[in-house]
Design a protein around this nucleic acid. Structure first.
Length: 287
DNA sequence: AGCATTGTTTCACA
DNA sequence: TTGTGAAACAATGC
């Protein structure tokens, strides 16, 4: 689930509900999620601090503490992570995916497993990292898989510009070069940050662009159209509540045909990921 | 049982 | 040295 739109929802949730509370305890016992830190390292750095801002570039998110005087806490949702914020006693809980408000007791139960909401039900071990606030609230990294990350002072220098902030000229220069397939290029987080597998299929289909076409062969007009499609598809996904609401997502299967032209949907591995596209509109070389 | 999975990092190779 | 692609990573679901 987590591509730029989901991470932005999580960041927004944290900004609205998890700032200004003093950190009383940290669960950083998962040495894989918290690598390369050792258990207690993140706790030592954060207990007594207060998150004061939540930032994001692409799929990377981080909390600022004590107005910049404390360390930052990087949070990455990986392949299946979600952020859960539990309010102080008496307030409600939320997830990065919206949903109905829950009581703190319900939220704790969800983190412990067995909640009727399938998005939150599961094993207690699926809470991989947690900040416990002094007022009784908490921020949880809830992740069925275990590819999410929590790390102090994350290195963000290898990320390209955020997919929603990159200028048209910068997009032309960064995306429109190299021999790699266009889809691989646009998913390269050091080129632009935030586009994942599903959002890539969506925006390429919206732009009628061929996933297999070498990125360096696109002209400026084509790159500008792709820039627009990137912004449009990303903003639409944020508004709709996630990348899975894209127009082409339900048609990424063998029996489907393109909802725009009726052509066959075809599949191949591009950039290491399963890719679906309309054979008629997005072929390369062109027919 | 085997394969696929919305992400990132590492490693091999041209 | 740089760029590209495959494999590994963890764990679940079909």
């Amino acid at each position: 689930m987590p591509e730029l739109p989901e991470v932005e929802a999580a960041r927004s949730l944290i900004a609205e509900r998890a700032l200004g509370h003093t950190i009383a305890a940290v669960d950083d016992a998962d040495t894989y999620v918290c690598r390369p830190h050792l258990p207690g390292d993140i706790a030592s750095a954060l207990v007594g601090r207060t998150p004061t801002a939540a930032h994001r570039i692409g799929k990377a998110m981080w909390l600022e503490t004590d107005d910049g005087d404390g360390p930052t806490l990087g949070l990455h949702l990986g392949m299946a992570g979600r952020i859960v914020v539990i309010g102080a006693e008496g307030s409600t809980q939320s997830t990065a995916y919206g949903g109905d408000p829950m009581s703190p007791a319900e939220a704790r139960a969800a983190a412990a497993g067995g909640h009727p909401d399938p998005r939150l039900s599961g094993n207690p071990a699926w809470t991989r990292f947690a900040l416990e606030f002094a007022d009784g609230g908490a921020l949880l990294l809830f992740d069925k898989r275990r590819l999410g990350r929590a790390v102090l002072n994350p290195d963000l220098t290898r990320l390209g510009p955020d997919a929603l902030l990159i200028s048209k000229a910068d997009f032309r220069a960064r995306v429109g070069s190299g021999d790699a397939p266009l889809k691989a290029r646009i998913m390269d987080q050091s080129v632009i940050a935030g586009v994942g597998n599903l959002l890539a299929d969506e925006l390429l289909w919206q732009a009628r662009a061929a996933p297999l076409r070498p990125a360096g062969t696109l002209d400026d007009d084509e790159l500008d159209a792709l820039w627009k499609a990137t912004r449009r598809a990303t903003r639409a996904a944020i508004k709709a509540g996630g990348v899975h609401h894209g127009a082409i997502i339900d048609f990424r299967n063998k029996d489907a045909s393109c909802p725009r032209c009726g052509g066959a949907m075809v599949k191949a591995a591009v950039g290491g990921r399963t890719t679906w596209w309309c054979e008629a509109e997005q072929s390369w070389p062109p027919v």
